[in-house]
Computed example of a mutant assay.
Amino acid sequence: MVRQDGKRSFGLREADGSEPSAFVGNYPRQAALKAARRLTPGPSEADADRQELRLRERGTNKLHIYEGWAWEEDAPEDGPEWLSGTITEANVAKQGIEFLDE
């Protein structure tokens, strides 16, 4: 369901059908990127392990399927003072949409 501010809620669906995590975004890709940043990061984008992310849009029977991966990079030199060391970057690629029979 869409909130008054336009944001939608997506539940990260596990293999057993449970949804232990929820992510909010205007678009499913925003929620998928947030979920991908929680993956175990690889040393570089090319070497990162890719995992399937299944996000169910709350209030609907739509299941958005993404391939997600994360990697570590050095923090930018011109970043804020509190941002130092390494940061986790992430990317996703949409694989499709399924409709649940629930």
Rank of each mutant, 00 (worst) to 15 (best):
L83F: 08
A36T: 04
R56Q: 14
L55Q: 05
D101P: 01
A36K: 04
G68H: 03
V24E: 13
Y66T: 00
R29Q: 14
G17S: 07
A36N: 04
Y27R: 13
A90R: 00
F10I: 03
T60Y: 03
E89M: 12
A93I: 07
H64A: 11
L63C: 03
K34R: 12
R56Y: 06
Q30L: 08
I87K: 06
F99H: 00
G17A: 04
R13W: 11
P28R: 04
R38D: 05
L83N: 03
F23N: 00
G59Y: 02
K7D: 06
A15W: 05
E52L: 13
E67C: 04
Q30A: 14
M1E: 09
P20G: 00
S44V: 10
K34Q: 15
M1L: 12
P28I: 01
E57R: 05
E14C: 04
L12Q: 13
H64Q: 07
D47S: 12
A36G: 06
P28W: 02
R58H: 15
V2D: 13
H64Y: 15
H64P: 02
E19I: 14
W71G: 06
E52V: 15
W71F: 11
E52H: 00
R3F: 07
S21T: 05
A15P: 02
S84L: 10
G79Y: 09
D5W: 00
E98D: 11
A70C: 02
T86R: 14
A31P: 00
G79H: 13
R8D: 01
E72M: 15
Q4H: 07
W82I: 10
E89L: 13
G11N: 05
A32E: 08
K34W: 07
I87M: 12
L12T: 07
A48G: 10
R13C: 14
R56D: 10
E89S: 06
S18Y: 02
V2E: 15
Y66G: 02
Y27S: 07
K7I: 09
L12C: 10
G6H: 02
F10M: 08
R58C: 13
A70D: 03
D5T: 01
G17E: 04
K7Y: 07
D47K: 09
G42P: 04
E89C: 15
Q51M: 15
R8E: 10
R13L: 15
N61M: 05
Y66I: 01
L33Q: 01
Q30G: 12
G79I: 06
K62I: 10
G6Y: 07
G85I: 06
R58F: 11
F10N: 00
R29V: 14
I87H: 01
D49V: 12
G42D: 09
Q95P: 00
D49C: 04
G6E: 08
S21R: 15
G11W: 04
E77V: 15
T86H: 06
V92I: 09
L100M: 09
D49R: 13
